[in-house]
Design a protein around this nucleic acid. Structure first.
Lengths: 230, 230
DNA sequence: CAAGCTATCAAGCGATCTATTGAATTACAA
DNA sequence: TTGTAATTCAATAGATCGCTTGATAGCTTG
C-alpha cells in the first residue's frame, strides 16, 4: 500500500460530501430555483412540489454540503446559493449533462416543447444599442427584483398576454427567463408571434448572464450577508 | 399540481444521472487521476488502490454518466475525460469543496503536510522570461508526456534527488505537479531547499493551467478520438 | 490453434444509506 | 396566547451501494 493512502482517502471522502449533494433530483431542482433568487422554505417547497418537511431536509443537506447560506427573516428562513462559485458549479453540471447525456437532452426537448429562434449575447447588445429591439424579462416579478439584465423590463409570463400593448410594435421583442431548462421564454415567443409580433428568445438565462458579465454590467443583489445561524 | 411537473421531474432526474457520479470518493479519485492523463484500467486500479474489477465498475459508471471516453488499445482499454467541460466541472467541484467545506480544507492540510511558498501564474511568466527561474514538472514521466506547461522540464519526484545536478545553481526552481491536492510539488520544494537551492511551488497544477491557457500556449495531447465502442 | 493477459460481466451480500411522511417541538410575530 | 414557519424526531420501507468472487469475452503472441 502506498504511503499517505488513508489521508488521500479522507480527502476524497470529504470532497464527496459535496458531491453527494448533487445526487438527488430534488436537490438539483432546489439549486436551480435558488440560482434565480433567494427564497424561503415555503416558497421552495411549493415551487418544487415537495412537502415542507422534505424540502427543509434537502435544504439542510445542501447547506451542510456548503452550497447554501441561510438567514432568518422574522418567522421564516431564507436560503440562497453560498456564492458565485456555487452558481458556476451548478451551471457547469447542468450544461455538461445537457451536452453529454442523451437522456437530459431528450427530457429537455420534451419539457420545452417546440424549438424557438434564439439570439446570442453579442447580437443582443448591438441590436439593443441600435434601438432595434426591446428586452423583456418574463420571470416572476420577485426574481426580476432579485437581479436582472440591465435594460430589461419585467413582464411575467402570465401577464404577458394582457400587457401586450406596453411593447412597441416597431421593434423586435427579445425574451429571456431562467435559462435553457426554463420554458417561459419559449412560451413568451410563441405568444408574441401569434399576436403578430417579431420575437426571439435570448439563448442565455439570467444566471448565465450574471456570471458572464463583469461586475456592474448586470444587476444582482448582494449575496446574503449578516449573521448566519447554524 | 402544476402543469409539466412530470416532465420537469424527468429532466432533473436525468441531470442527477451525472450528479450521482460525483457521490463516491473512489470515482472522484479516478476523475482526478484522469485529469492528468488518459490511463488504462490497470493503471487506474493500481494508482487508486482498488481491485481491477472494482475500478472497472466505477469507470463504467463514470462512462455511463457521460464523463469519460474510452478506446480499446490492443488488450487493454484506455479511459480519458470526455472533454474540457468535464475537466472544468471536476475542478469547479474540487475548488468549491475546498473553499466551503472545512473537512476538505483540513484533510488537504493533513495530506499535504507543511505549507510551502507558492508563486502565481503571472509572476512565473515574468520570472521565466527574465531567465531568473527554471520550471520543473515533478509528475511521473507519462503524465508529462500527455501534456505539460511549455518550457517545463520533466524530473519526476522520485528521481529529483539524484538528478539535482541537472538544475542550474544560479536560478530559482519552480516546481509544479497535479494540482492543489497533490503532494509532489511540496515535497520537491522541501527536497530542493534542504539541498540549498532556492525553490517555490507553482500555485496551479497542470490541469488548471491547461484550462486557463488559450489554446496553443500549453501542450495538451488531443482528447481520445477515433472509434469509441459501445 | 492454444496460452496468457486485460477488461467486463453476473451474482451475491451485507451494509449503509435513502427519501419520505406525519407528529411533536422550537422560534418568532402580533 | 395564538398562529405561522421551520426544524426535529421517529419510523419505515426501499433502494441503492460498494465490493468481492468466479466465470466469460476480446485481443495478442507463441
Amino acid at each position: 500500500m502506498e504511503p499517505g493512502r488513508e489521508r488521500k482517502d479522507a480527502l476524497f471522502e470529504a470532497v464527496a460530501l459535496m458531491g453527494k449533494a448533487f445526487a438527488s433530483p430534488v436537490r438539483l431542482e432546489l439549486l436551480d430555483l435558488l440560482a434565480q433568487a433567494p427564497r424561503t422554505v415555503q416558497e421552495l417547497a411549493r415551487a418544487s412540489g415537495q412537502s415542507i418537511a422534505n424540502a427543509s431536509q434537502h435544504l439542510q443537506a445542501l447547506y451542510a454540503a456548503g452550497l447554501l447560506s441561510r438567514r432568518r427573516e422574522g418567522t421564516s428562513v431564507r436560503y440562497a446559493l453560498a456564492g458565485q462559485d456555487v452558481l458556476a458549479l451548478w451551471l457547469a453540471l447542468r450544461d455538461a449533462s445537457a451536452a453529454r447525456l442523451a437522456e437530459v437532452e431528450r427530457a429537455a426537448r420534451e419539457y420545452l416543447g417546440e424549438e424557438v429562434e434564439a439570439i446570442g449575447r453579442e447580437q443582443l447588445l448591438t441590436r439593443l444599442s441600435r434601438g432595434e429591439a426591446v428586452l423583456v424579462d418574463v420571470r416572476p416579478a420577485e426574481e426580476y427584483a432579485a437581479g436582472h439584465i440591465v435594460g430589461a423590463r419585467s413582464i411575467p409570463i402570465d401577464e404577458l398576454e394582457r400587457r401586450l400593448a406596453e411593447l412597441p410594435q416597431d421593434r423586435e421583442v427579445i425574451a429571456y427567463c431562467r435559462g435553457p431548462f426554463c420554458a417561459y421564454a419559449n412560451q413568451a415567443v410563441r405568444t408574441l408571434r401569434s399576436a403578430g409580433r417579431r420575437a426571439r428568445r435570448l439563448e442565455e438565462g439570467w444566471p448565465e448572464w450574471s456570471l458572464g458579465s463583469p461586475p456592474g454590467e448586470a444587476t444582482r443583489q448582494p449575496a446574503l450577508s449578516g449573521p448566519v445561524e447554524r
